[in-house]
Design a protein around this nucleic acid. Structure first.
Lengths: 199, 199
DNA sequence: AACGATAATTGACCAATGGTCAACAAGAAA
DNA sequence: TTTCTTGTTGACCATTGGTCAATTATCGTT
């Protein structure tokens, strides 16, 4: 028997849009499901055919938005002719910082609700349903290391540390100006990234 | 007129204990205030004379527990004769990792609920009410730099990056074994800490 | 000791919300 | 058309965070 797919993707994406809009302006806790479905123009019960619960829509939103941001950065990099690995990484970091600085609400939303476990789990789910693109930065990184003869004991771990260092410090630098406002903080950060890559 | 202080600190600490116990075993969301006050043996209203709301008790718990852990590490360090700055920092990091590895529930609680803004704000409040000790690692770090003639452009920023790198990566390594289980991950981390301090 | 003032405590009560489900609608297959 | 599956609806429920008027305990003052 063929599986019947009648679920309209429009409804899900409408709910996602409404959820995102409301989470941005009112925060996750202060947004009720009733408000989301009202905004999306569907009944409350419908919400629960597309999402397991309130956390489910939040996780999917974070995963999608983060992933899009990341892929945009990667696409823009491919249009440049930057060819040194450390500069490539810094280009991507810079793109992401700029974007988040201009979208502090998004950053706030991500940093308040993101946790590594949730993120990887949801990204994985979306990837298996082919609703998201692959993890391109790892490829970039591994290729760069091969081509440029960079010696790293464990590239995956190095990349991981760079990502963590960037995200945790930049979030604070942009949102709370701690320990420095982002523009003063950048040089230190980039120096450390170079150190991590070039030994 | 003298200020009347009749509030019993016992009640507050009983509520904190009950809250901690329940948050550990049932999680923050699944613990109701009714359960906390029942466990502490007070009425619901009393809760709200000691804490502004449910988030308030959570923030105070995180701040207190994190602070205690940190100070325990520092006290133990002072009993050793480690005198190189990078080794001192690694000693403290090691102490904290060990502790959190043995108390995964606490780590989970902290990492799920901690955000930098909340943390610094709450620590600051507690410090002003003299309910917590001072920020000793910064002193250690600055003293070490002076005594050992280490050259760092901006020591505060370096220390900050070390703390962020350690916390974000170790949390994931212990809880999710990503990118490596903590024991395999440690060498990479310590190498990077040394790089950060020694250039 | 007695009194008044202030602060702490209580628990019934309320409003809001996350989630359920029986009934209904719409479309596909026969 | 009839049947079956899947999507949709919104009234309804249980739970919970937070309030507040009334009560009790404690301190300073006379």
């Amino acid at each position: 028997m063929k599986k019947d797919i009648r679920k309209e993707p429009e409804k899900e994406s409408k709910l996602l849009d409404s959820g995102f809009k409301l989470f941005m302006h009112k925060g996750f806790q202060d947004t009720s499901i009733q408000e989301i479905v009202d905004d999306a123009g569907v009944a409350k019960g419908t919400f629960y055919t597309y999402f397991k619960d309130k956390y489910d829509i939040r996780n999917k939103l974070i995963a999608k938005k983060s992933n899009k941001l990341f892929n945009d950065a990667y696409k823009k990099l491919k249009k440049t002719d930057i060819n040194k690995l450390d500069e490539q990484v810094i280009f991507i970091v810079d793109f992401i910082i700029d974007y988040l600085e201009k979208n502090k609400l998004l950053l706030q939303f991500i940093s308040k609700n993101l946790s590594w476990g949730i993120y990887t789990k949801t990204i994985n789910e979306l990837y298996q349903k082919q609703e998201t693109e692959n993890n391109t930065i790892l490829e970039l990184f591994l290729n760069g290391i091969k081509e440029q003869n960079i010696e790293l004991e464990n590239p995956e771990v190095t990349l991981y540390m760079i990502i963590e260092l960037v995200s945790s410090t930049c979030f604070n630098s942009i949102l709370y100006k701690e320990p420095l406002p982002i523009n003063e903080f950048k040089p230190y950060l980039y120096k450390e990234i170079k150190k991590l890559i070039n030994n």
